[in-house]
């Protein structure tokens, strides 16, 4: 999956963020290359979702530098001086180079599946409606939703809604896709279809940053796994190193809890194999 020597799509340097008195990110550096799939893991409250939301400035960091596809979108030094002073139009334009998929799907309930997918291209990019619809249909087909184009979100299952949300993000032709716990709000039997769609996307060469609790999936999909603890990157490396040979005590404990859960499932799996 990894492409050697490819260009940097996303660069974060020294990202700090606090909510009130509580520091959630304390100097994060993260670089993502084209075609790379980076999975962020960590206990709840470790800052992984905040970090993801900082990438497209849904959360504004207090300081640090962010560059998306070669264009700086955020550069604030310690003390709060903004070195870029980008007008909102420019921020919106660069932000649209990232596609985001949310835990709660956040589809627009007053539009059909297709309406959701073409909203960005038509309204933001000013693409001709017919062309946007053609591409939108292709993306929905790709997500296995060909029969659901004209349904409203309320008529779709959680798994289907999340796949519409992925298509909506892809419609903007983003340089990088950001996934914020995309399966956490799903019924267990619907998780698989969303993970499958994400895996296919990763295999097609899409650059992705994924926040997830599904460590098995992380192992499968990731080129790199990044472990966050109390707002700091504690481990960053290949999945087999980070997940199978954890060194840092906090990471060990975190992965250990995952193994415990897996152990609890073992009798069930063994019974199924018998």
């Amino acid at each position: 999956m990894k492409r050697e020597g490819s260009e940097t799509v996303l660069a974060l340097e020294g990202i700090h963020k606090r909510f009130g008195d509580r520091p959630v990110l304390r100097g994060i550096d993260l670089t993502v290359k084209a075609g790379e799939v980076v999975v962020l893991i960590g206990a709840s409250g470790s800052g992984k979702t905040s970090l993801l939301r900082c990438i497209n400035l849904l959360n504004i960091p207090d300081q640090g530098r962010i560059t998306i596809a070669g264009e700086p979108i955020f550069d604030v030094e310690e003390g709060g001086r903004d070195r870029l002073k980008l007008p909102p139009r420019q921020v919106n334009r660069i932000r649209a180079k990232t596609g985001m998929v949310f835990q709660q799907f956040n589809l627009f309930p007053h539009m059909t599946a297709l309406g959701n997918v073409i909203e960005g291209p038509v309204i933001v990019q000013g693409i001709d409606r017919a062309a946007a619809e053609k591409r939108g249909c292709e993306l929905l087909d790709q997500m296995g939703l060909a029969d659901h184009r004209h349904k409203h979100p309320a008529q779709l299952s959680g798994g289907q809604q999340q796949r519409v949300a992925i298509a909506r993000a892809l419609a903007m032709n983003p340089a990088v896709m950001l996934f914020d716990e995309p399966t956490s709000a799903l019924d267990p039997e619907l998780v698989g279809e969303v993970l499958k769609a994400m895996l296919a996307l990763a295999r097609s060469g899409m650059t992705m940053v994924v926040v997830t609790h599904e460590l098995g999936f992380a192992f499968e999909i990731a080129d790199r796994v990044v472990f966050l603890d109390e707002g700091i990157v504690v481990a960053d490396g290949a999945p087999k190193d980070v997940l199978l040979k954890p060194e840092h005590p906090r990471l060990k404990a975190f992965v250990g809890r995952f193994h415990e859960t897996a152990d609890m499932l073992r009798p069930f799996l063994e019974a199924a194999q018998r």
Binding site: N92, F102, A169
Partner: peptide, 27 residues
Amino acid sequence: IEPGQTDAATAIGMSYSQRMRRIILPQ
């Protein structure tokens, strides 16, 4: 209107007025 709607609209690059006109006010 759920804050997630604003998040989603912002994430696809919508400006404040586009968000209001297309996503928030209709709902």
